[in-house]
Amino acid sequence: MDFSIFLQYGPALLKGFGITVLCWLAGTVFGMTLGLVVALIQRYGPRWLGWIIQAYIEIIRGTPFLVQLFVLYYGGPLVGLRLDALPAGILGLTVYGSPYFAEIFRSGFRAVPHGQIEAARAIGMAELAIVRRILLPLGLVSSLPALVNFSIILTKETVILSIITVPELMYQVGRMSAETFRYLETNLVLALFFWLLVEAISRVGRRLEARITKHLVEERT
């Protein structure tokens, strides 16, 4: 094995990793936000809107991310949506992730005991206040492990963005492999970077979970 090539390609790889993290972070944050909005509309919105959203969830979940990305990037201009590779990639990840996030939130909300919502209604709290003060905090807590889990899955979907020429890590590794023919080394480095990212996310996730569930579980003595 020959790792000397990394002297030459190091900066490009680091930059690629930076873009990978950026795409992942933006896609996760926007995807979660969209998913949350979708889940709230499903719960409180009119029935017909719920059906439309259900159809959207089925379509996104039923098609490969690659296909969605092609449609967005190459089909978009046909309807006037002309995006650069990076924003297209982030938008693609957002759209792709949102229905999964929506489902996670939906089941998180369902895990909030109905009695706790009724208790709030019984003292005369308005529905919006109930959402803000009871449903969201408790629903988020029960959603957290699944949210972290899906965010980790999303890290690996970012490699697909290389196909529409987003200069993220996979793209750089591909270029480097093609120029040096060192496929093993380059892909090992790719794996290492992803492992680092995933490890960091799951650590943060576990910390967060421990922190926010501190008061929710009964003390073990």
């Binding site: 706790q116 009724e118 208790a119 709030a120 019984a122 905090p137 408790l138 008061h215 929710l216």
Partner: peptide
């Protein structure tokens, strides 16, 4: 409802 208090079998306190 403000004028009617209710206490439930399962307490239904907000755990957070």
């Amino acid at each position: 409802r403000r004028a009617i208090g209710m206490v439930f079998q399962q307490f239904n306190l907000w755990p957070h």
